[in-house]
Design a protein around this nucleic acid. Structure first.
Lengths: 341, 341
DNA sequence: TACATATTTGAAAGCGCTTTGGATGCCACT
DNA sequence: AGTGGCATCCAAAGCGCTTTCAAATATGTA
């Protein structure tokens, strides 16, 4: 069943049927009803390819998925996608996912953009001085960046959480509890959020005249394995830190294992605050010692970015270009007063 | 730059240029060279929408992503996607992901199929007597099922792992170690793999005249939280099981926490074997007590399914219709002889 | 009544590609 | 010379939709 057949069936022109379907005002309400009714009965669905060819709009948002033989998939990606999807499904949008080698991000993004397969781009895994920004600006296609790029002019559309503020607040909480020896388990050094979180910690410490020792910072992929290793390292330091800031509940998982193995008690000998992306897999409240966290739902961010992207494509704008979400500091049992030496 | 412009530039017809580009034999080699050269210089890229409209082929494989407000995203989904992507990138294929409510799977799949956006479908999260199979068969579109549907005629293309065999072997190992009291922490009851794994355990036990008590089986979402709960339950049973079979390393995570909290030692008081999908997030060898596992890479399955799907679309056939992969039983420290009472 | 103005509909021209169904020229062969 | 076969190429017809431009009808106004 195509437009032509449908319009013949109705004794109308393709034009009128098309207009009725797309909500144009110049069509009689009665005829519109009749068309809608016929659609229901015949199960007619417009051919997307043709629609796209005619309009230039694809009804899809594109994203690059880092992947390569040996490349680790990322839990956060799936969670974020779920958020995008939740919104996309409401607008009959879909995703086009371009798998690409992480070393090939810029080129992959460009390919995706010029492929004509997508109306808008979503970009994540931002780095400091990210080279993709220049490319995106040169394209004439809407995009939203998840995160920001430290060191680049902030003149691009983004949605980010206040990483610096989150870790600043978390650090202050630990300071108030009397801690003075801090360590930070962070994500990969080149990633924007890692840079900002570190800055947050440092500026809170600086206010008290404290510093973050170089040996007390780890940068690694956010897996439990790396968490374990990093924590084992911290625990062997001569001046063992009592307060740990952790960029992910996944890292925290390994870290806590190390704490337990060392015979220490979380929330007593060692205090820990982790950033919680609200991954359904790992609920901080159901850890054996519930985790104090800075919380911001990755999924909610996905929903919002999808809104902005789809809204822009549909010209249902205007949308704020730049959003910075505060995180919540949720105190649970993994933080406590500094132990008396 | 489009075909028309390119062909005018070359002084050829669109027909010839199109043929040269698509490797048709009836074009002079010299002309073909000239065309290819011009493509390189101009950076011409065929418009996918037009190509698709003309050929009916989209160069993409479609999948439904279960998502809904409140619906948990699934780590396995992301990992599998990484595998699909790894292969897709080699063939310039992309994915179209249709987000859909889990209760709406059949309809979503149909919408995706008739949307004209995809050439082939990938279907996962199979259930016993899965209603999607009938629908897929009625479509005239290639598809591959990941998993199988217990209770349905196995006359559809699939790739599955030998879940029954895996859990049969795992159970036999534990039996050889002297265990007699077993428990199974499984995935949701309606899912195919859960049914088969349970069968595997039961048939190994039956060979020794043992049975799996009803109270010793849990069916739940595969999160660490559920793992914790299930294990706590098992540990309170009057005849506490000493051998645990576990459908996921994620469940094992929670389960082991429960074991530790109960003051028991994994691999001594309690033996545990988990199925390992080779999620990069959770490596069984880096658990505090390395986990004995049945292993099969989800990602590798993704690669293979993408091969079959893309191959079928490109008619690079023929592919085996049904593949059943054996799992590896890898013995580490979480299994040991039954403790002397 | 006559004319201007809304309102509602349609014919037809694309969108950029593939593919059918010839053309054209050239050669070998009878 | 006449015929058939082959290698190359092209014009034009779609694919199924949107949208421009124009026409037809209905409504309002003087």
């Amino acid at each position: 069943m195509n437009l032509k057949q449908l319009s013949e069936l109705l004794g109308l022109s393709q034009t009128t049927v098309s207009r009725a379907l797309n909500g144009y005002p110049e069509v009689n309400e009665a005829t519109r009803e009749r068309v809608l009714q016929a659609v229901k009965e015949t199960g007619y669905r417009p051919n997307k390819a043709a629609q796209r060819l005619a309009t230039g709009k694809a009804g899809s948002i594109g994203l690059v998925m880092p992947t390569a033989p040996g490349h680790q998939s990322d839990v956060h990606f799936g969670e974020f996608l779920a958020g995008l999807g939740e919104e996309a499904v409401r607008h009959d949008f879909h995703f086009v996912i371009m798998p690409a080698d992480p070393d090939d991000e810029v080129a992959a993004l460009r390919r995706l953009a010029i492929s004509g397969n997508v109306d808008a781009l979503f970009v994540a895994y931002m780095r400091g001085h990210d080279p993709r920004l220049a490319m995106l600006k040169s394209l004439s296609m809407p995009y939203v960046v998840h995160g920001r790029s430290f060191g680049s002019e902030p003149d691009y559309p983004y949605l980010d959480i206040d990483n610096e503020g989150a870790f600043y607040d978390a650090t202050r909480l630990l300071l108030q509890l009397g801690h003075t020896r801090f360590a930070l388990m962070n994500g990969p050094m080149h990633l924007d959020f890692a840079i900002r979180r570190k800055n947050g910690v440092m500026s809170a410490l600086a206010e008290r005249g404290l510093t973050l020792e170089e040996g007390c910072v780890s940068h690694a992929l956010m897996t439990d394995e790396q968490g374990l290793l990093a924590m084992e390292h911290f625990l062997q330091l001569p001046e063992r830190p009592t307060a740990i800031l952790c960029s992910s509940t996944v890292l925290a998982l390994g870290a806590i294992r190390a704490v337990n193995q060392a015979g220490l008690r979380l929330g007593e000998d060692i205090s820990l605050i982790a950033h919680d992306d609200v991954l359904p897999l790992l609920k901080p409240e159901s850890f054996s010692v519930p985790l104090t966290t800075t919380r911001s739902s990755l999924r909610a961010a996905g929903v919002r970015i999808a809104q902005r992207l789809i809204g822009t494509v549909k010209q249902a704008g205007p949308f704020p270009d730049q959003e910075l979400w505060k995180t919540e500091l949720i105190v649970r049992a993994s933080t406590g007063p500094v132990p008396q030496a």
